[in-house]
Computed example of a mutant assay.
Amino acid sequence: MDARDEHLTLEALGLADAPRDHPLRYPGVRPSGSGLLDGDRLLPLDRLAHPGRTPVVAVGSNASPAQLRHKMAESGVSSPVPMVRARVTGIDVGVSAHISRHGYVSASPVGSPGTARQLFVIWLDPEQLATMDATEPNFDRVLLPAPQVRVEQENGEALLGCFAYVNHHGVLHDGSGAPRRHRDQRALIAELLAESVALRELFGGTPEEFCRRARSDAGLRDRGTRLFAQEKRVTVSGLEHLRVR
C-alpha cells in the first residue's frame, strides 16, 4: 500500500469493526461521507452516479464498509464499491422479524410516507450484485417505487431505479401494530427479551447471552424466528407488493 493512503484505511478511519464480528454494535460504523471502498481503504469518490451499476439503498449493515469488505472477500470479489450518502424519503428503518446467523436482529426498510433518513446508496456491478443477493437469504431485493420513495444523493440529484432489501419474514411491530423502529442493538435485544418469557427461555436474559446462543445454533435461530410469528409480534413492512428482482 502507498504510504500516502495509510490514513484512508478502515482501521485509520475507525471503520474496521464489522457487525458480523461484533453483533451488539450492529449495524456498524458508517462513513462520514461518500467514498469508494477499495479493499481495506475508503478512498475519495470522484463522481456520484455510476452507469452500468445497480444502486441499492443500504438500511442496515450493508452501509458498514467493514461488513461489505467481508461479504465481497468471502466470494472472491475484489472490485471497488462506490458508497454514496443520500437522503431517502418515504421509508424508515424497521426491525427484521428474523434472527441473523451473526447473532443480531437486523434492520429492514418499512414504508413511511414523509419520513426522511440519511442512508447510503451502494453502487454494485453485476458480480457484486450477485454476491450481495446470495448473502441476503432472508431478504428480497425490490425496486423502490418513485415518487413514493425518493432518493437524493448528497448533491441533491434524485435517483430513479433504486433497489433495497426487504425482509420476507416481515418486520416486528411496536405493540400497537405499527412497525418497530430499529435502534441501538443492545437496547433492542434487551427490549425484545423483556417482552417475551419464551424468548428468554430460548436465548437467556441478556443481550450478550442472546448473541452467543444465536451465533452458535442455527436451529435455535429458526425457533426464535418462528416464535416472533407465533407470538404475533410480526407485521407487514408496507413494501411487500413491490416487484422483486
Rank of each mutant, 00 (worst) to 15 (best):
D2F: 11
A3I: 13
A3E: 11
R4W: 09
D5R: 12
D5I: 08
D5K: 07
E6P: 01
H7Y: 13
L8K: 05
L8Q: 05
A12R: 00
L13R: 04
R20Q: 15
H22G: 09
P23I: 10
L24W: 08
G28M: 06
G28C: 10
V29P: 05
R30N: 06
P31L: 08
P31I: 04
P31V: 04
S32E: 14
G33C: 10
L37H: 02
L37R: 00
D38T: 14
G39Q: 02
L42T: 01
L43H: 04
L43N: 02
L45K: 04
L48S: 05
R53M: 12
T54M: 09
P55V: 09
P55K: 03
V57H: 00
N62V: 08
A63L: 07
A63H: 07
S64A: 15
S64D: 08
P65V: 07
L68R: 05
L68K: 02
R69I: 07
K71R: 15
K71P: 00
M72T: 01
M72E: 04
M72D: 00
M72N: 04
A73K: 14
G76H: 08
S78D: 13
S79H: 13
V81P: 02
V81C: 03
P82R: 07
V84A: 02
R85F: 12
A86W: 06
T89V: 14
G94L: 03
G94D: 01
S96M: 12
A97K: 03
H98K: 13
I99T: 03
I99C: 02
S100W: 12
P109G: 05
V110G: 02
P113C: 13
G114I: 12
G114E: 06
T115D: 15
T115P: 04
Q118A: 15
A130T: 11
T135I: 11
E136S: 10
P137E: 10
F139H: 10
R141M: 10
P145N: 06
P145M: 12
A146I: 10
Q148L: 15
R150P: 04
N155V: 14
N155R: 12
G156Q: 08
G156A: 13
E157D: 14
E157A: 15
E157P: 05
L159D: 00
L159Q: 02
G161E: 02
G161Q: 08
F163C: 09
A164E: 02
A164P: 01
A164N: 05
Y165H: 15
L172F: 08
D174Q: 02
A178D: 10
P179D: 03
R180A: 06
R181K: 13
R183M: 15
Q185R: 10
Q185W: 09
Q185S: 09
R186P: 03
L188M: 08
E191G: 05
L193M: 11
E195D: 14
A198P: 04
T206H: 09
P207E: 01
E208I: 05
E209P: 03
E209A: 07
C211F: 10
R213Y: 09
R213L: 12
R215C: 11
S216R: 14
S216W: 00
D217S: 06
D217P: 05
G219S: 13
R221Y: 10
R221K: 11
D222P: 02
T225Y: 09
F228N: 03
Q230V: 00
E231C: 04
K232M: 06
V236P: 01
G238E: 01
L239H: 03
E240G: 05
E240F: 10
H241M: 12
R245Y: 13
R245P: 09
